[in-house]
């Protein structure tokens, strides 16, 4: 009896081994490239790895990292969300309105910002799933809508959070009073872990991949793919709301004209992290690594006083190389 029951469980362990090795190879490659890059900068500029600068890099990763996490889920489904940047701005503008005009208490203000983000995401999802708009078009519409609404609602002026003392500390306060260790970094970390759990432990992640892998087969398995798509786009919007909180907290204001361009950096992070834009595969760890690579790279280039115009070109080159190596790995597979 014991022998027969032992056998399958042993098999399960074997199986786990093989899969994690496969998934890990990709992460290891990206991690290797990342470490090489860090060493490169460290040798040229030793203060690149100073405590202060590491924290600077991590803080700089927060907004893009959160956006990239959200957009990753959409990318897993084979979709795309180019509205995350402006949805982020819109959610922070609405938070500002909730604080200054409606006088809501701070926790509600923050929650409201998240809800606005999630709502925008849900509308994206509705457009994609129920109105059959291509994701690019649906989210481009949302990008324009939120961009416009942010300007209209704010009256094209920054909205300040000075009415809520301590708002700025949400992002730039020190965690447990450790100097330089910003709360935002902890928030990113916690949310990244949550994203990881959602991705690998819940049916949201499972269905995101299933839809990306073969939407029709998933639908024909009786899965309500439409509803799941709405849920996944909402999740992406929610993450944009998180990013909006960090952004507005760092600036202690909502800047209505910001946001455009952030979506591309977020998508770039997801792609550098090895996530295929075709959907059906990918990893949250990769996305976070991708976001770290972008912020570490730009920081390093800045420290070396590389002209701004060249910085952009170099990031573009890294993006192209990342995708190239990923493609090669896939072909070999």
């Amino acid at each position: 009896m014991t022998r027969t029951s032992d056998k399958p469980s042993k098999k399960i362990n074997d199986n786990k081994m093989t899969s994690s090795i496969r998934d890990r190879s990709q992460i290891v490659i990206i991690l290797g490239i990342y470490i090489l890059m860090i060493l490169f900068f460290f040798i040229l500029k030793p203060n690149y790895l100073s405590y202060d600068n590491i924290m600077t890099i991590l803080l700089a990763t927060c907004v893009n990292g959160l956006l990239a996490l959200g957009v990753s889920f959409v990318i897993f489904t084979g979709g795309i969300d180019i509205s995350v940047g402006t949805v982020m701005t819109f959610s922070s503008v609405m938070s500002g309105i909730a604080l200054n005009n409606w006088g809501l208490p701070l926790p509600l203000v923050i929650l409201f910002g998240f809800l606005v983000g999630a709502f925008c995401g849900a509308v994206n999802g509705f457009g994609v799933a129920k109105m059959y708009l291509p994701p690019f078009i649906a989210t481009m519409a949302m990008q324009m809508i939120t961009k416009g609404l942010s300007l209209v609602v704010s009256g094209i002026k920054p909205i300040y959070f000075t009415a809520a003392p301590g708002y700025q500390n949400i992002a730039t306060g020190y965690f447990l009073g450790i100097p330089g260790f910003y709360n935002a970094i902890v928030i990113l970390l916690v949310i990244a872990v949550i994203a990881y759990i959602i991705f690998s432990k819940t049916i949201i992640g499972r269905f995101a991949l299933a839809i990306g892998s073969n939407e029709e087969a998933t639908r024909l398995s009786g899965v309500k793919t439409d509803n799941w798509k709405i849920a996944i786009y909402s999740l992406c919007g929610l993450f944009a709301g998180f990013a909006g909180l960090i952004m507005s907290s760092r600036l202690n204001s909502a800047q209505p004209q910001l946001g455009a361009g952030y979506e591309l950096e977020a998508i770039a992070a997801a792609v550098i992290g090895g996530n295929s834009l075709n959907g059906g595969e990918g990893s949250i760890t990769g996305t976070i690594l991708g976001a770290l690579i972008i912020s570490s790279l730009t920081n390093g280039l800045r420290i070396m006083s590389v002209p701004t115009e060249l910085q952009s070109a170099i990031v573009g080159l890294v993006l192209a190389l990342a995708v190239y190596f990923d493609k090669r790995r896939r072909i070999n597979e």
Binding site: S50, T56, M247, L251, N299, R302, I303, S305, T308
Partner: peptide, 25 residues
């Protein structure tokens, strides 16, 4: 000692400034 550009974006300009300080304390 250094000229960098942040697109007039508040967040980017903050990062640019911090990078500059790191390079030229």
């Amino acid at each position: 000692v250094d000229i960098q550009y942040g697109d007039g974006d508040h967040l980017k300009s903050a990062e640019v400034t911090k990078g500059m300080l790191q390079a030229h304390p």
